[in-house]
Design a protein around this nucleic acid. Sequence first.
DNA 1: CGGGAGTTTGACCTGGTTCAACAGGTGTGG
DNA 2: CCACACCTGTTGAACCAGGTCAAACTCCCG
Lengths: 258, 258
Amino acid sequence: MNEVSLGNGRRILGNGQRIPCEECPLRITPHFRPFEPSELEFVSSFKTGELVAEAGAGILSEGTNNAALYTVLSGWAFRYKTLEDGRRQVLNYLLPGDLVGLQGPVMGELDHSVEALSNLVLCVFQRNRLHDLFASHPGLGFDVTWLASREERMLDAHLLSLGRRTALERAAYLIAFLYQRALAVGMVSKKSPRIPITQLLVADTLGLSIVHTNKTLRKLSVRGLIVWHGGACEVSDFHGLMKMAGATPDEDRKRPLI
Amino acid sequence: MNEVSLGNGRRILGNGQRIPCEECPLRITPHFRPFEPSELEFVSSFKTGELVAEAGAGILSEGTNNAALYTVLSGWAFRYKTLEDGRRQVLNYLLPGDLVGLQGPVMGELDHSVEALSNLVLCVFQRNRLHDLFASHPGLGFDVTWLASREERMLDAHLLSLGRRTALERAAYLIAFLYQRALAVGMVSKKSPRIPITQLLVADTLGLSIVHTNKTLRKLSVRGLIVWHGGACEVSDFHGLMKMAGATPDEDRKRPLI
DNA sequence: CGGGAGTTTGACCTGGTTCAACAGGTGTGG
DNA sequence: CCACACCTGTTGAACCAGGTCAAACTCCCG
């Protein structure tokens, strides 16, 4: 097991273990579309290994131009960009089944960074075989586009939030959004109903200061919509949050898993 | 020539004329990657016709679940979302060479609307043949993903702006961004150096009120960075704008044109 | 000449920022 | 064992960027 230090001192561990794609615990869940045996075989050969990262580890950095392509197998991560003076904006969160770093192989360079939010396991793919994927399995190529479109849709929604919602609406939307996504891949449940997120991160997602984020989240608590437990958020009233945000739940459609 | 009334009374015209893809005036420019003859042939057969829309016409509407797929041939358009109470957020602008409505064929439903900003000509594609495209020309499938990644990248940048830039920085960034994109496809030039945009639209893009948008643009004028001519904006100092926004120009890499 | 779309300005108000201080938890080294 | 640093969350007070309201001005077009 080789070890690589990266970024802020948190460790990334190469992992000798490897879950075969055929036995992928994610794929079995009803949220993902079933794959043809030949597709599964390709994906399995496309995967070169796994990467295990501790919470807080940097996975990819802005400007990197030879980064790998990953899929989240378990855990939480987030994408962000920063301005020169350090102002940071979280762009989106990454959960199991999400493709990480697609911009690298596709456009040649990454313009955002990725950091692990919780302990994280990633499937590592051979970036130079992405063209093979499109050539030999058009359905999988289409799936990659599907995932890219889905990301675009989330960004659109987030943009609407930042541009046109008030702080309270934004916070409600963000938490409901994360809850919904986490629920769909079993990252929150009866046993562990908590979203592992700090108020600083919420602030950098909503485009607010930490102080005002704190006061806003407090309002959501007081109204009984959420419970905050230092370092994690528990949703008590999903529909209340959605109503406050002026949003409607997404239907949970089956998605591809690469 | 059939005529369809849509949305706000502005007209959309079906257009008997058709520029063959082999003679596409856009494709000749150095901004697009050269296509193989077989790719070009496919794209040509993929295109069913052209759509001509007047400035102000609605092209696609949120919630539509059987919308067509287009590419902008000439003119300007924009994508937007609205909240129930009418608050509107512009998500991005569409210029020649941009794919319009990809989310429709890929994900089954569109979650944003599109409106023509200037008079507009669109190439219309057969949405149900998108799978054929991936199957018969993997390179084109990859190109679709490339374009989706590019859109994602623009949205990331826009999110950073809304979340973390001040009004003045945001405005500078937006105008420099539009100028840069327009320049790359010949939509601004010595002869017609103007970006056809209203202050209301700028406001809805930046997440600001019209009043404050006006005061902010005024500051940019006073500093000699732009000139505003009712309904259009002319850039006088691109690098000044970029500096004010704390951004660096994108390199203008060759892109695919579908 | 009337009306609408787009822009401009001033006065006032408020949502959100900044600064500052503090509390609790956790990890680290002496 | 304590002392200390550090991270996360909390709260209050002063301040300001940007919002709201109101009104007018300039084109353009019918």
